[in-house]
Design a protein around this nucleic acid. Structure first.
Lengths: 209, 209
DNA sequence: CTCCTTCGCATACCGTCGGTATGTGAAGGT
DNA sequence: ACCTTCACATACCGACGGTATGCGAAGGAG
């Protein structure tokens, strides 16, 4: 009985090298925990569920991560990276600087309605890791790009000169909360209204022509 | 030994009626749990700590509240009510409708820097109770006033006609996040910048004269 | 004053959780 | 063929949130 998984699955199955198997286990843990965290929320997910869903034991989990919060951090980083990629893709599809800015913001608003993003990045993230660490990860993933965009827009005269840090937080928070509201909504008209409201907000900030 | 507290403290001390004592126990539990929740965060506070700080046992806690989240909910309602009172007081000190609106928003931004508000209302609230319930409480406490103010401003022509629901979330989220950023800041200049940024944002939304 | 009911709270206990210490055997180098 | 490494599995722990039960003072009824 003991260690039967080694005999039954690990050594018999066609496995790549040890490093390859290790990475696969790690990715499985992240994938399954992400699914559980997204659907039930961090607090309602036990590590027993995670390792059962991943087909490993707690020994494997603690071999890859320092604990539950470290596992969550890895998941959050993955989610944030995906959001950042979506935002960057939407922004880079535009040529006009102002259009790039607004397209990125709208893409961020849309991303926030994804269930994984909503629960992991917007709801649990700040509470589990603390706002400092959450913001540091957010900064590294996407908020830095937003701040850089704002700085560029000010330099180009499209935005009135002002400190970018508070404006970044104002806009980031506005989009986060609007995305949460949107994700909860059942009325499809709300999406249109939210995008319009964000559009109005951004346009209102623009320098007078 | 058993039930010695009854003999030593409860019946000997000068106590008001049973109902009075009950309310005092409840308020003590809320007060102490609020203090612990605010300083350590919901997840890092155990009910053992709470009842020890309150000088009662878990039996008392579960007599007053259905569980840990119910205790947190009671605390959150108290915090939200205090924020709402501060915002209402700041708004009603102004005569001009637009000044009332902006003063309320600035007061909300200031309230968010309070440690209790920050941790309980802004960080743990949505994660612990879920966004739906958190928003329902927020709605009842203060967001409804914000929405009513916005509706009134639109009717008076001070804001362009638009759906108020998404705008309410945008503004609420912007102020929440800015408050979190402010609370973390060590530079006193950030407070000035944040208030200025919020002021610019609100002014930008105003109807062109 | 006496009895009886109510109820606010204490006590004792439980299953489960996150976390740790230790064991094990296949992989990969020598 | 051997030996070291390491990617896990196993077994166990203290602490947690929650529950069942007991108790005794408070307050009303007669």
């Amino acid at each position: 009985m003991a260690y039967h998984r080694y005999v039954n699955e690990r050594s018999v199955k066609v496995n790549g090298g040890r490093a390859r198997q290790k990475e696969q286990t790690r990715r499985t843990l992240i994938r399954e925990s992400r699914r559980l965290f997204a659907t039930a929320g961090y607090g309602a997910v036990s590590l027993s569920e995670v390792v059962r869903a991943a087909g490993v034991t707690k020994g494997a989990l603690y071999h890859h991560f320092d604990g539950k919060t470290a596992l969550f951090r890895a998941v959050l980083e993955e989610v944030q990276q995906q959001v950042a990629e979506a935002v960057a893709a939407a922004a880079e599809a535009q040529d006009d600087p102002w259009a790039r800015f607004t397209a990125g913001c709208q893409a961020f608003l849309t991303s926030g309605t994804d269930p994984d993003v909503r629960q992991i990045m917007l709801l649990d993230g700040p509470a589990v890791l603390g706002w400092n660490e959450w913001r540091a990860l957010d900064e590294a993933a996407s908020a830095r790009h937003l701040a850089e965009e704002l700085t560029a827009l000010i330099e180009e005269g499209l935005l009135p000169p002002q400190p970018v840090a508070p404006l970044t937080r104002l806009l980031s928070g506005a989009m986060n909360e609007a995305a949460l509201w949107l994700a909860e909504s059942t009325n499809p008209e709300d999406l249109t209204d939210a995008r319009a409201a964000l559009s109005r907000l951004l346009e209102a900030l623009r320098s007078p022509q």
